[in-house]
Each structure stands twice: as C-alpha cells, then as structure tokens.
C-alpha cells in the first residue's frame, strides 16, 4: 500500500458516497446515467469474485464489499425507489457497443485463460469505458448538476491516482500489470475533457455547462 493507492481508493469511495448522497438528498437521480451505473455494478461483481477464493487483507475485503454493495444500492435507488426521476430519454448510449467488444477482448488479451482471470480482465476493460454513457448523457443535455460533476471528478481522479501508484510500484516493487496500466490510462484519458471543464467552470463557482 502506498499513498497514491490509498488516496485513489479514498477518491473512489468518496465518488460513490457523493452519488448516493446526491440521489438520497435530492430524492432524484436526474442527470445520472443508469447505464454507467449498471456497468459499474457488473465491473465490481466480475472483479471481486476473488472475495470467495482469496483473502488479501481486512482492508481489501472490506472495500470490495462496500463497492459491490454500494453499486447495487445505487441501482436500487435509480431503478426502484426513485425510478420516476430517472432521465432515460437522455440515457441512450448503447451498452452492447461496449460490453460485447470488451468481452471479446478479455478472452483474447489476458494474463491467464482461466474463468476468474478472464472475468477480472473483463472488469478492468469494462471499467475503463463504463463512464461513456454518463459523459454522453452530459453532452446530450449540455450540463451537469454541480454535485454530479464533483462525483465525476472524484471518480476520474481515482484511476489517475492509480497510475501514479503503478509508477511507484514499478520502481519500488518491480510490479507491472500491463492490462491494468493500459486500461487505466485509457480510462483517465476519457475524463480529460471533463477535467478541463470541471477545473475551468466548477472550481470558479459556476455550473458545469458545455460550450455551445
């Protein structure tokens, strides 16, 4: 464990809590992509199956359980409790365009051709693009609520901090996972445009709106 990984995990946790709080406090999931959230639940489910097969640490187990539970909690709020507020007209990104190629790639490019490893690889690849429906939704509506933009900033920062963690681990532990690093870089690059808008607008007290 190093400081980059720890702050990355905290940013990830913070993002999830921010999203749950936004939905709970405003009693609305308007502006949130249900498709991105469904894919995040799929990401956590397929990645953390090793909860059953391996014990790493109390921290690792606890965080994994929190991430799985919160992702399904978010789906419950979006699709059951506050279903009426779900903005499905703007959530039109086709999930199969991501899930099918990612599934194919995880069979072709992985560290080991075993069920758990393929599912882990699938989750790494899927996570890298799972935010696209959310970003697409913002580009369609042309704006995001401030709390939603804080959520996205925390969520994007998490993988950027993981990149620093991988640099650290490469130099100090000789650890290098090409699949995680490439997917993590792709994931972070997808946020760059959003990061720019967030810093130039939200940090100056304005709402996140897209240039016309």
């Amino acid at each position: 464990m190093n400081v980059f990984r720890l702050t990355g995990d905290i940013a990830h946790l913070l993002a999830i809590i921010l999203l749950l709080m936004k939905i709970w406090k405003t009693r609305s999931c308007a502006g949130v992509s249900g498709k991105s959230q469904m894919m995040f639940a799929l990401v956590f489910t397929t990645r953390y199956l090793d909860l059953i097969t391996n014990f790493i640490s109390l921290y690792n187990t606890t965080m994994k359980m929190i991430f799985i539970a919160s992702s399904y909690g978010t789906l419950y709020l979006m699709f059951l409790k506050f279903r009426a507020t779900y903005d499905s007209n703007h959530d039109t990104f086709r999930m199969e365009f991501l899930v099918v190629p990612v599934a194919g790639l995880s069979f072709l490019v992985n560290h080991d051709f075993s069920p758990l490893e393929i599912l882990w690889t699938f989750s790494i690849y899927l996570e890298s693009v799972a935010i696209l429906p959310q970003l697409f939704m913002i580009s369609k509506t042309g704006e995001a609520e401030t709390i939603t933009s804080h959520y996205l900033f925390a969520l994007g920062s998490y993988r950027a901090l993981y990149i620093l963690n991988w640099v650290y681990r490469f130099y100090f532990e000789g650890f290098f996972d090409l699949i995680a690093v490439v997917a993590g870089c792709v994931q972070t690059v997808l946020y760059c445009d959003f990061f720019y808008l967030y810093i130039t607008k939200v940090w100056k007290g304005k709402k996140l709106t897209l240039p016309a």
Partner: peptide, 10 residues
C-alpha cells in the same frame, strides 16, 4: 517484472 494473478488492488 510480474503481473500477479492474486489481485491486491481494488
């Protein structure tokens, strides 16, 4: 250089 099959990262 190794990529571990035991995943300690989240």
């Amino acid at each position: 250089l190794r990529a571990s099959l035991i995943k300690d990262e989240l």
